[in-house]
Structure formats: structure tokens, C-alpha cells
């Protein structure tokens, strides 16, 4: 069965210099599309990417990543819209590069479509009432 997952990989400093993505592709036949990659001052690496391939390969790859000490999180958990806080002003729409945040018409309510989100994080400091939350 073919699967496609958007995931966040957290690399501890020791693993940052290893060609992990290359290994995922070569040994586990997974296609990858990197959406975002950063290395923090503490040298922890974070890569947001989409992995697609056979389900059994994805599961094998997950085991491999765990063995390397790399934490794997599904992307959906990372950016959330706090509906209690959101006032549906729309300021986030201007900074969202992938149209994950859009105003529905005619209600003019802001809708967050997590499938389109690439976790760039721009909406988080832009939201005036801090309704967009980054969860790692």
C-alpha cells in the first residue's frame, strides 16, 4: 500500500552530520520532499518533509530513525489553531505561503487547512491574539 506522510524529524546534535535523508531514499525507497530545514543554536536539527512510498518501507524507516535517536512526529501536531482565541481577523492569511489559512466566503471565517501547512511558523507571531500555536 502506498502512503504519503508529512513529518517532522528532530535530529540530536550527534546525528546532524549524517546523510539520513539520503539513506531513507536509498535503503527504504522513500521519496522525499523537504518543506523546511533548520539547525538550532544547540545544534538540534529539525526537518519538515513529506515522505512517500510503500507503507512497509515507511514503517521500516521509522524504526531506523528511532534507532538513530531521531524523533519522528506527524506534521499535524505541530501548528494548531486555537479556536477559542481566534477572532477571524485574517492577518495570518497575508503571511501564509501555501494558502493553508484562508477566509471562507461568505462567512469570512478563517479556516486552517493543516494538509497545506508546511510549518513555516510565520502565522505564529503574526496572529495578534496568538491563536496560532506551534507545538513541538
Amino acid at each position: 500500500m502506498k502512503v504519503a506522510h508529512k513529518v517532522v524529524l528532530h535530529f540530536p546534535p550527534a546525528v546532524v552530520e549524517q546523510p539520513v535523508i539520503y539513506i531513507l531514499s536509498r535503503d527504504y525507497n522513500l521519496a522525499f520532499n523537504i518543506l523546511k530545514a533548520t539547525i538550532s543554536q544547540q545544534e538540534e536539527g529539525i526537518i519538515v518533509l513529506e515522505l512517500s512510498g510503500e507503507d512497509k518501507d515507511f514503517k521500516r524507516a521509522s524504526k531506523y530513525l528511532k534507532k538513530q535517536g531521531i524523533r519522528l512526529q506527524p506534521l499535524l501536531q505541530d501548528i494548531r489553531k486555537n479556536e477559542d482565541k481566534c477572532v477571524h481577523c485574517g492577518l495570518c492569511i497575508a503571511v501564509c505561503p501555501t494558502d493553508a489559512l484562508l477566509a471562507e466566503r461568505p462567512s469570512m471565517k478563517v479556516n486552517f487547512n493543516a494538509d497545506h501547512c508546511v510549518v513555516c511558523g510565520e502565522c505564529v507571531p503574526t496572529c495578534p491574539v496568538r491563536a496560532m500555536e506551534l507545538h513541538f
Partner: peptide
């Protein structure tokens, strides 16, 4: 693209 900054729904 246009962006509202006041909430029309509210």
C-alpha cells in the same frame, strides 16, 4: 490577494 484585519464575522 487581500487580507482583512478586522473580523467581519465578529
Amino acid at each position: 490577494p487581500t487580507t482583512p484585519l478586522s473580523s467581519y464575522s465578529l
